[in-house]
């Protein structure tokens, strides 16, 4: 059985509509009109032990609602959900003992206390055996460089330091599964890199399953093999990162260094977008494979060197969001 089984999961919120003006305010008192917001709309997926998954989607797409259901914070409106055989919201305490959660935007530690005291409190809350705690702490000190601020109150930490402390806090009790919500938000390149290598480390060395929600596609590119994308509550895509590139990568580029100056270099199915002496850049769509294009060129010209440029994943995802490449229906329905 998979670690996480999600079947036809939905979460709907009822949002009271406010009428405007004095008359509207009076009418609000007697009858209320609600808008149903389908924050998560009938999604299904499975996650196996040891996976490292990137969960993407624009703001308000339903990412954090999904995470809140998986962590037991919210009760689903429909569908089923189990994490290692437990129903998160029903068996909340048992479930939360086995998971770790980091919300990038706010800390789970004690604001006025030194980091070490926060970690110590978590040790008792999660009932972590003393030896295990010491061992983990030593390990995290090394991996995350905690020593430099272990005795600093959380309120005085920099964002990056706070995130490192929070990561340590979320992993002290050896969870099988961790949810990381925007763990690199607002960090500089060095701090990001440190956090990423830590995530990689716990995934590969400890076999911890990681679900990572992020806006930073660098995170996804460096860490995740599998990507799930949600928008308007619907799961639009679930598959390997490479599939995302293939399906939605749009046009690729081929840079060719010719051996001599050819006056005529146009090719059917590809357009020339730059020409600098003997170096020419072609752009071609998904309709033609790279090897097809290369053999066409090679049959006509002498070629010294060539490179295929894949589009940046960032651009790919932006295109998916902006151009609505994946179909979905508008999901807010007015009901009385």
């Amino acid at each position: 059985m998979a670690l996480i089984e999600v079947r036809e999961l939905s979460k709907h919120f009822y949002v009271a509509k406010h009428r405007r003006g004095v008359g509207g305010a009076l009418r609000n008192l007697f009858s209320r009109e609600y808008t149903i917001v389908r924050a998560v709309d009938n999604i299904s997926f499975q996650i196996e032990r040891g996976e490292l998954i990137g969960y993407l989607g624009p703001n308000g797409a339903g990412k954090s609602t999904t995470i809140k259901m998986l962590t037991g914070i919210l009760v689903p409106s429909g569908g089923t959900l189990s994490v290692s055989g437990l129903v998160p919201w029903k068996q909340r305490t048992e479930h939360t003992r086995r998971i770790g959660v980091v919300f990038g935007q706010r800390t789970n530690l004690w604001w006025d206390l030194p980091v070490i005291e926060s970690l110590d409190l978590l040790k008792y809350i999660y009932k972590v055996p003393h030896e295990r705690f010491q061992q983990n702490l030593r390990n995290f000190e090394k991996l995350l460089g905690l020593e430099e601020f272990l005795n600093t109150p959380v309120r005085s930490l920099s964002l990056g330091q706070r995130m490192r402390a929070d990561l340590a806090g979320a992993l002290l009790h050896d969870p099988d599964l961790v949810f990381l919500d925007e763990p690199t938000i607002g960090l500089d390149v060095v701090a990001k890199e440190r956090i990423r290598s830590f995530i990689k480390e716990i995934n590969t060395q400890r076999g911890v399953t990681v679900i990572l929600t992020t806006h930073d596609l660098g995170d996804v590119e460096k860490l995740c093999k599998r990507v799930m994308m949600i928008d308007h509550g619907r799961l639009l895509l679930d598959g390997p990162l490479s599939e995302l590139q293939e399906r939605f990568g749009g046009e690729r580029e081929l840079v060719v260094d010719f051996a001599e100056d050819y006056p005529e270099i146009s090719i059917d199915g590809a357009s020339v977008i730059a020409r600098e002496g003997q170096r020419v850049t072609y752009r071609f769509g998904r309709g033609m494979s790279a090897s097809e294009l290369i053999s066409k060129l090679a049959s006509r010209y002498r070629i010294l060197d060539l490179t295929v440029r894949e589009p940046e994943i960032e651009n790919t995802v932006r295109r998916i969001y902006e151009e609505r490449l994946l179909s979905h229906t508008s999901s807010a329905i007015r009901e009385k």
Partner: peptide
């Protein structure tokens, strides 16, 4: 402040 979530993700009443 929306901080109740923090308590719900801990294995305690």
């Amino acid at each position: 402040r929306g901080e109740f979530d923090k308590f719900l993700i801990r294995p305690r009443n």
